[in-house]
Nucleic acid binder design. Structure first.
Lengths: 305, 305
DNA sequence: GACCTTTACGCTTTGCGTAACCATG
DNA sequence: CATGGTTACGCAAAGCGTAAAGGTC
């Protein structure tokens, strides 16, 4: 097979139509250049050049091969560049996991910021609950997750993206919906509740359990999807403890949210998480961007009675 | 710059994910392969492979570079093939000159036969009179001409494509149009004639002069285009001596053609001509095709009164 | 210790440059 | 004899193979 150097040599001779000038352009002397071209022609089994008294001209085959060589050499030059951009994280793919409801508020602005700072890093979106994200991160199926604690500190690095309040969601006409001061824990104990799944939404389940004692008989349904809970609340199946950012969706259901007395307003956390040992350069391009703005949760308006 | 061999080496290792197996596939031993990959990585300034206990895996950059290498190697393989096809005359361009009217009959079938036997040889058509074709052939601006004698036998090779009769064209109602036996030369001497240009259509001018004496005062117009002559004849500007193949066009003008007494019926010749020393391989693919069928001039029907 | 990759060393091959040679106007 | 390409020859660099070494499970 011929070499790229031979292709370059041929291009030089073909363009200069003169071995001497071509050799000069290639920073070498004529004889080895002449030999390389002969070797190339022998290799291809065809004559590329017509040696004439005042220089050389191209055969039809030489003309065709010249065009091929131009393309080939262009490709050979760009190949490293692309690889280098990928290595630098300028170009690449990051597979991003996010929890359905939790990310509705922050995902859009985050993606916009990624796109602004790293336009050639494309993001693959994969909706999954936090535990599945952690599995996927460790198996290499995912590069970056947006989810909730806890996660193993040794292998997973994380960055806090957002904290928000846990509030009570109830139908618009509910007895607790009209008051002027916060709902208390004792108010909640008397209610039927729609609860987070203790397996698939462990984080919210534990948060709820920390705030109020849960009696099995007061649970109407459990689910991992916060939006489903809002629907059930609207349908009168009970109240639910949900993150404040659900307000925008609750409004559509004629559901009201109210704060809980004594609950800290940074109870619900959302983190970006990634495998500490990840080799994906594009991921390391995105990580600093997570910090580049504190991203206040862009709530459109508080819906509160 | 890296070499095609390095690209092939990298592809083998990347695909086998194992230096040993890759070396086997490349018919070499591991150590030099390992060195070539190191050299490639150093050259590119990036890590392509992750050396792991049970073999190797690709970095993101390595993955990108692998794709580039596949394309590059595919291009490197096809480049010689294209050039070889051109050299063999299987693929290429032939610039073909033809005389306007003379070729109307034969050009279509000829092109069809070229296309059938050499589908990848494309034909560039250039309409020009025979002397211009000869100039263009010798300057290399044309590869093949279709024209009429004479041409210099030393530098131009030729093949007779077609012979036909020279006939008299006259308006449908002309006094000579109705007879049952051929028009004689003495009939012609009394007529006003539309004549071929002695410079641009020398061949026909000479043929006409050979058949009949031409008096200056009987010439109404001269032109190089036979079709123009038919139009002038139709408009009553005289009679004209034209090749038989003009019949199909004459019909549209309500012009009648009649044979000339004593004139041989192979008087008008049409030749293919090319520079004997032409280096265009595609031309040499076409030349045998000229012979592949005698191409009887496909006259649709004889229009004769 | 089994498996895989890398480093060390010696030899062959490739490829350059200088110099001499050949062909054509 | 000037111009431009090729052949001859010697040396330096690149690249291979064998052998030995380094690192993980």
């Amino acid at each position: 097979m011929f070499t790229l150097d031979q292709a370059r040599a041929f291009v030089a001779v073909a363009e200069e139509r003169h071995f001497g000038r071509a050799a000069e352009r290639l920073h070498m002397t004529q004889p080895p250049l002449s030999r390389q071209i002969q070797k190339l022609e022998k290799e291809l089994g065809i004559a590329l050049l017509l040696r004439e008294p005042r220089g050389v001209s191209l055969t039809a085959a030489g003309d065709a091969f010249l065009a091929e060589c131009h393309q080939l050499l262009a490709k050979a030059e760009q190949a490293p560049r692309r690889a280098q951009l990928v290595a630098a994280g300028q170009v690449g793919v990051v597979r991003l996991g996010y929890t359905a409801a939790s990310s509705y508020g922050i995902l859009g602005p985050l993606l916009a910021r990624f796109h602004e700072h790293a336009p050639n890093v494309s993001i693959e979106l994969h909706e999954m609950v936090t535990p599945d994200q952690l599995d996927a991160l460790q198996s290499g199926a995912l590069d970056l997750g947006i989810g909730r604690p806890p996660f193993p500190k040794d292998r997973i690095s994380s960055r806090l993206l957002l904290t928000e309040e846990l509030v009570v969601a109830m139908p618009a006409g509910h007895r607790l919906a009209g008051g002027t001061h916060p709902v208390t824990v004792s108010d909640l104990e008397e209610e039927t509740i729609v609860l987070h799944s203790p397996t698939k939404a462990r984080y919210f389940y534990d948060l709820t359990a920390r705030i109020m004692p849960i009696r099995r008989e007061q649970i109407s349904y459990t689910t991992s999807q916060v939006l489903t809970m809002v629907g059930l609340v609207a349908a009168g199946h009970g109240i639910a403890l949900v993150p404040r950012s659900i307000d925008r969706f609750a409004a559509g259901y004629d559901v009201v949210t109210r704060p809980i007395a004594g609950a800290p307003n940074d109870l619900v956390q959302l983190h970006a998480m990634w495998e500490s040992a990840s080799e994906n350069p594009a991921l390391h391009t995105l990580i600093p961007i997570l910090d580049s703005s504190p991203t206040p949760p862009p709530l459109t308006s508080a819906v509160q009675a």
